[in-house]
Write a protein that binds this DNA or RNA. Structure first.
Lengths: 141, 141
DNA sequence: TTTGACTGGTTGCAAAAAACAACTGGACAA
DNA sequence: TTGTCCAGTTGTTTTTTGCAACCAGTCAAA
């Protein structure tokens, strides 16, 4: 089992989401309540549809999200974060926090991030619970 | 000023270190006390020398590290993290923490990470201070 | 029941990035 | 002065990305 560069924890994380797009997809689901392919395709960063397909498949293989059929629209797939994906929230928040300090970010986003940072574990737990509810509601079918 | 995909905080972070190599270089300096080109070239992941050159240049442009001449060896460059780079420590620790929970990581690394996570702000401050000292010692020349 | 818009993708091609290996010229230590 | 180490550079191949056009199934309204 050596299709990986090393077993360093940082590298192990990067082998999953060390690229320009993966964390943006996770952001869409985690913070922007996006659930469908076309919703993610419409995000500001303009990901190409073939790349989106590829990353969603890889994330499913890694067990970070699951794909289920929409109950009301046969053609639509619902993408939901698993516990493994939800556990990336602290990583996302620290990254966003760093950006508010060192990069160009809108005031609105900055306020939103600082709320998450200062809101502490309580607010994060609340958000995580909501994502876990979403997961439960699709997986029990 | 629109050579970026968006001003979302997550994307702003990814434009700096959203690739397979950048955070490994920062890890080398931050946690493995590497300071020289050849030391980083020798890391387990086997980065190619042209890629390493490229990333070090970009990180310098972003103000995340600085390159200085070694006092004792004219040909050697010393790479040190700036405050902006040192501030990435919480991101690195959260990523490593996630890996210990969800990826294959050695027991030794796992213990090291958990020490950082549980050691809290105190241990992180101690490590940050050491990196800031290293920065001071090269920048006052 | 036809139409037209929307669904999650797929395909083929061009451009960019990464990987690989060989090489360079200056510096140092013996 | 010889061999080793230094930070890279250069040229080529392979892989990944970006782009645009396209597709068949589905749905809601006319």
């Amino acid at each position: 089992m050596k299709n990986c560069k090393s077993y360093c924890p940082i590298n192990q994380a990067l082998e999953v989401f060390g690229d320009k797009w993966t964390l943006l997809i996770i952001r869409d689901i985690m913070f922007d309540e996006k659930r469908y392919f076309r919703e993610m395709l419409g995000s500001d960063e303009k990901i190409a549809s073939n790349i989106l397909t590829d990353r969603l498949n890889k994330l499913e293989e890694f067990g970070i999200l699951i794909k289920t059929k929409d109950a009301h629209h046969k053609q639509k797939n619902v993408y939901s974060l698993t516990d493994k994906g939800i556990d990336l929230m602290p990583v996302m928040i620290q990254m966003a926090h760093w950006s508010t300090k060192h990069r160009e970010v809108s005031e609105k986003d900055k306020a939103h991030v600082m709320e998450l940072v200062n809101g502490g574990q309580k607010l994060q737990d609340k958000m995580s619970d909501a994502l876990r509810e979403a997961l439960k509601s699709v997986s029990k079918k």
